[in-house]
């Protein structure tokens, strides 16, 4: 599946969701996750689905890409549904197959839970699909800001995250390079018993750690040479700004919440 899995991937774009402040996106997704559990009528589910699907469409990420990308999750959704069919024994017996009774309650429950599950996955994956990892880092730094008062190292945490993001591709290349070098010295990463394979990982992991430490050391020196001395007195290039777009989005979301409670059974 590998490359078709889209959870956690960023798809560049310029839709209004792409342009939203990442803090807005995180806040709304957080509350959306909460209110999904309040839906209990066809109308209320319909409203939430409309919101989620509407958001997804507005990102202009091609639908087939989204649907295919959520493939591994589809399996879970279908599984949840079937589980409910078998386990929930409420309401009337709708039909019987091989002397097993299927209840209306099971079907309704199954549908409702699977739909919730689907909505959660869809909306949360929209965050990573439309927000670069570094924007998410900025948002976290911004939102945790108040914790600085209790000496929580917010700036350091954010810097750590952004440096990790920066070095992921570098370390991936390095892993490939070292595994090729060791394969050339006769290491077989693919076959052999479990124990053999664990042993084959050592010649890969040790050099990776050594090189990561060396990189860290050199990076620290380079950062110091460039005047880094912690978060104090530091200015920032990347700025988060709540704009009109964000305000409209919040209003829309509040309307959704009101609508939800009006349509609840």
């Amino acid at each position: 599946m590998g490359s078709s899995m889209i959870i956690g991937q960023y798809v560049p774009g310029n839709s209004f969701i792409h342009r939203l402040d990442p803090r807005t996106k995180i806040t709304i997704i957080f509350f959306f996750v909460l209110i999904v559990f309040f839906a209990n009528s066809v109308m209320s589910y319909g409203l939430l689905t409309l919101f989620a699907v509407g958001s997804a469409v507005s990102t202009r990420i091609p639908a087939p890409y989204l649907i295919k990308g959520l493939l591994p999750v589809w399996f879970l959704i279908v599984f949840t549904f079937i589980l409910h069919l078998f386990v929930t024994k409420e309401g009337e017996v709708l039909f019987t197959i091989f002397s097993f009774d299927f209840y209306t309650g099971g079907i309704i429950q199954g549908l409702a839970i699977s739909l919730r599950f689907f909505l959660l996955i869809l909306v949360t994956s929209l965050l990573t699909l439309t927000t670069t990892p570094i924007e998410i880092t900025d948002a976290i730094e911004g939102m945790l800001g108040p914790l600085k008062k209790i000496r929580f190292p917010v700036h350091e945490l954010a810097l750590m995250m952004s440096i990790s993001l920066r070095f992921i591709p570098t370390l991936m290349q390095e892993t490939e390079k070292i595994s090729k070098a060791q394969a050339s010295r006769g290491v077989d990463f693919r076959t052999g018993s479990f124990k053999d394979r664990i042993k084959a990982v050592v010649p890969l992991l040790v050099p990776l750690f050594v090189s990561a430490f060396k990189r860290a050391e050199e990076l620290a020196m380079a950062m110091e040479a460039r005047g880094y001395q912690g978060g104090e007195g530091r200015t920032k290039l990347r700025e988060l700004r709540i704009g009109k777009l964000d305000t409209y989005t919040y209003i829309l979301f509040i309307l959704l919440v009101i609508g939800l409670f009006l349509t609840r059974a």
Partner: peptide
């Protein structure tokens, strides 16, 4: 100002 040997190990920003 200082520029070091390894191009990768002094690039701090994500862009």
């Amino acid at each position: 100002g200082m520029v070091f040997q390894n191009p990768d190990n002094q690039f701090v920003g994500t862009t």
